[in-house]
Design a binder for these strands. Structure first.
Length: 335
DNA sequence: AGATAGTCCTGTGGGC
DNA sequence: TGCCCACAGGACTATC
């Protein structure tokens, strides 16, 4: 399940291989991946899909951005004839991508066979202008060959849409309108711990529910929520209004620790034409401390007199994993 | 405002 | 072997 680290790996991959390239052709293999595109407009279905292709065609892909699990590519139109007469600021559009549960983005050779769950293909021309890639792979000549950006999604919880950029505290200065309700993520330079703490205290809900609320803090999914809570030694049902400043700091520390570790494990794995994603950053199998470890010994208290095994509780239609010794259940629990 | 339930999907795996 | 069903998950909507 792609959470923040996996999305960041994808962002870097797209930046390395697609920045500066121009969309020459858009193919929609499955319109369900555009479910959220042009929502709220009165466009009839065929026109709605056409508007996606039209908004992208001949646009240049600028450096991709991310907030939480939301990924977007700002678009730049063909050099417009002097339009300053109108005086109004042109609206800048972006291609907004969410990977959902099973989304992948690949940069592929056009001749590569279609993947089983291929949903959208962008034919890319031009040449990649990103200079951050290591010089040893992807020579200039290779970068100038036609490529395809492919969106693949087995379960179709993810999708693409065109969304206009609006001013924001995001480091890039803007976010897509369709993602304005998403809070800053803990790895964002402007993330404010004090705001996080105060928002948390004002809530009257359970700690994990708050962590999963993307409007409160973004980028955290079910897996990393459990891992961060384990690291911070906090129970997932702790009422948010009882969290102390020190506990909030510990929690954020846990969130950042697990995300950075996953990023390190997954960030090295993407290679030339395969912008890896799909959750499995390589981190999952090896380093998880609580998630999915039902009945297995907790690695922290294992050698103590109170050694416990990881428990699994049903929670919000999914599961919560926790250690009864390290994360004692509060007297007053709150879902 | 917050809680809850329902919706969108498909592959996997357990039970029989 | 094969069928059925529960389950997994993020984000959004509707309803209370």
């Amino acid at each position: 399940m792609p959470e923040l680290p996996e999305v960041e790996v994808v962002r870097r991959g797209i930046g390395r291989w697609a920045t500066g390239r121009t969309v020459e052709k858009v193919t929609i293999h499955d319109p369900r991946s555009l479910r959220r595109h042009a929502l709220g407009t009165t466009l009839a279905e065929p026109a709605r899909l056409d508007s996606f292709a039209a908004a992208l065609t001949q646009q240049t892909l600028l450096a991709p951005q991310r907030r939480g699990k939301f990924l977007w590519i700002p678009l730049q139109g063909p050099a417009a004839p002097a339009e300053s007469a109108s005086g109004s600021e042109p609206v800048q559009q972006s291609l907004l991508i969410h990977l959902g549960m099973s989304g992948q983005v690949l940069i592929d050779d056009p001749s590569a066979p279609a993947q089983k769950h291929l949903k959208i293909t962008l034919q890319l021309g031009g040449e990649c202008t990103d200079l951050s890639g290591s010089g040893d792979e992807g020579s200039r000549g290779e970068d100038a060959r036609p490529k395809q950006l492919r969106f693949i999604d087995q379960r179709i919880f993810g999708g693409m849409q065109i969304s206009e950029l609006v001013a924001s505290t995001h480091p890039s200065g803007s976010v897509p309108a369709a993602a304005v309700h998403i809070a800053p993520d803990p790895l964002e330079p402007g993330f404010d711990e004090e705001t996080f703490f105060r928002t948390l205290r004002r809530r009257k809900t359970g700690l994990k529910r708050a962590l999963l609320d993307q409007g409160m803090v973004s980028g955290i999914g079910n897996i990393y929520a459990d891992e961060a809570l384990w690291l911070a030694r906090l129970h997932y049902l702790r009422p948010t209004e009882t969290i102390t400043r020190a506990e909030a700091a510990r929690l954020l520390d846990g969130v950042k620790t697990v995300m950075l570790a996953a990023l390190e494990a997954g960030g090295t794995s993407f290679d030339a034409l395969y912008v890896n994603v799909n959750g499995a950053s390589g981190y999952f199998d090896r380093s998880l401390q609580s998630y999915g470890r039902t009945g297995q010994p907790c690695r922290r208290c294992a050698d103590t007199p109170r050694a416990a095994t990881i428990r699994r509780d049903p929670f919000m239609g999914r599961s919560s994993f926790w250690c009864p010794t390290c994360q004692p259940r509060p007297r007053r629990a709150r879902a």
